[in-house]
Design a protein around this nucleic acid. Sequence first.
DNA 1: TGTACGGGTGGAATCGATTCCATGGGGGGC
DNA 2: GCCCCCCATGGAATCGATTCCACCCGTACA
Lengths: 338, 338
Amino acid sequence: MAGIKDVATEAGVSVATVSRVLNSHPSVSEAARVRVLAAVEALGYRPNAVARSLRTDRTRTLGLVISDVLNPYFTELARSVEEAARALGYSVIIGNADERPDLQDHHVRTLLDRRIDGLLVSPTDGGSPLMLEAVRGGTPIVFVDRWIPGIDVPVVRADGRAAIGDLVAHLHRLGRRRLAIIAGPAATTTGSERVEAFRAALAAHGLPLPDEYVGQGDFQAASGRRATERFLALPEPPDAVFAADNLMTLGALDALRAHGLRIGADIALAAFDDIPWFVHTDPPVTAIAQPTGELGRAAVQALAGLIGGGAPPSVTLPARLVVRRSCGEAAPNPRSEQ
Amino acid sequence: MAGIKDVATEAGVSVATVSRVLNSHPSVSEAARVRVLAAVEALGYRPNAVARSLRTDRTRTLGLVISDVLNPYFTELARSVEEAARALGYSVIIGNADERPDLQDHHVRTLLDRRIDGLLVSPTDGGSPLMLEAVRGGTPIVFVDRWIPGIDVPVVRADGRAAIGDLVAHLHRLGRRRLAIIAGPAATTTGSERVEAFRAALAAHGLPLPDEYVGQGDFQAASGRRATERFLALPEPPDAVFAADNLMTLGALDALRAHGLRIGADIALAAFDDIPWFVHTDPPVTAIAQPTGELGRAAVQALAGLIGGGAPPSVTLPARLVVRRSCGEAAPNPRSEQ
DNA sequence: TGTACGGGTGGAATCGATTCCATGGGGGGC
DNA sequence: GCCCCCCATGGAATCGATTCCACCCGTACA
């Protein structure tokens, strides 16, 4: 493959001049410019990004480490991140942590080794020494969706508090009184926050949240199934189940159906994280939708700010309730479908 | 950040020795080894992958350019590719082409600039001069799922022919006679192949495939909806619709439901590409499942072979029919659910 | 007419690793 | 006891770009 030297020879100038043309440095004569560009064209020259990065110490690459690529929420997040990054001239390397701290660390480490310009992370666990070290080492990092308390970097996320309040009100209005939740791992912020918001919303309606109504899940479908089974085995099972992410909802759906329950009638089901498929399930699932695209864009923006030497603020966007039929009869409020 | 020089100083040896220790070169004394490793530990040294790549001309990185990340099929493919690549010590950079040839070329170009060791592509269109050039230039490339005729590289894909035959037989057995298909873009191999296989299977049962029963889609949900609307507007609408990918199936589902049709009774619906959500739709959708995980693994293996200087063969794995309820009553043959 | 300034240019240093080559020293074979 | 070979090691070249610095030359101003 042709190098900058070949271009220089072909154009009859020095490599310094070629470099200047390619980086649109002002001090280049028009004559030299056209000769260089012609040589570039003739040789089909493309600058070696590796060499360039070594010299400039910038890779024009961002790392994105997410907890689970198979989760449509994160897929969509990844897509919007890539889009926003591309608009700014960055490439994105995605690492899938699969909810495993060791895999997460593996990805963070290789990304740092590759000298990415910045890192976007949705941490799987509550405290990674590696990440702390990276921040101290000066790598620009932004947390998205989830975060790690004690690590002082911008956090871009959605606040589901209000939407969870709306959901509980909705359930209450439909006559549901025994509300249960399938929580995510306590080590994740989203895992614990959603339970807390749920508990607070119940309290506002004078409802209790007994321990046996808090199922422990891990954001994967199988755990949603298990937790639901356990609920149904209780002497007094709940009449509404709220799953803290979309995959666990799927598991819950399975389990409820396996028990011959009519969802929306015998028992209500709602999800955190809305996905296109919830419109098509039987019945369509009431869910709390995050502004995923905006989260991705905001995260990239914050990271770019950090890379540029600024101190971008954290961003919190509101989630909203999308009422469908899985909690009971059709939407009594205007925020239906979409 | 500490460099190899700092480690050398700290350990009291030359950089050459440090490098040898890190690359487990045999000619290093035990004494030097422990001193170097201690220094590495003490300084928290991590080799600069950029510098290393410049020198060795290997980045230990693979590029994966897929047509649509939001499509669960490709998401799963990406995941298995990353997994297999990681096992071999490679990282993966994913580029999302969004079914747009220009975006695809953008990604291929930046990946080549970054000097990735090999490229995995599921092309969005039928002929990319850039890709041809890359192959000539010596970049190892493997096509996965789709391919470009005329570019001589290994192709890893699933053959849906037999499964489509099974599907048509299934529909025929259930009394369906007016079978329509929503095809993918003719520019993609999967787009045209599936129509051909469908046509051949119909012919085997003595059934015609009139032009108005071939809807033109683009692998996106909206096109599935449009094509279905058009079918339903025909004087004699089909009594079975086969969508050539999962997203178009979603669109078809929408359209059918909007017309008040009972899927599985009034009209049959089947999909190419099975996804977890098809179990939960109303009704569960009969689909043709590809061995996605194996495809990803095989593709990485082929690419690694190519990188290693070998000439790996193309791989074709069979897809299989998964019968659910969207074509009519429950599975009359043993290949149900999964 | 001399000098100062600035634009265009090339040579060479540099980024951080790997690796070739030369060298010194120790051990084994004769 | 001598020589040879091989192992361990360090110096220096190298990968392909960017960029500092010095130089040349032409123009404008005093």
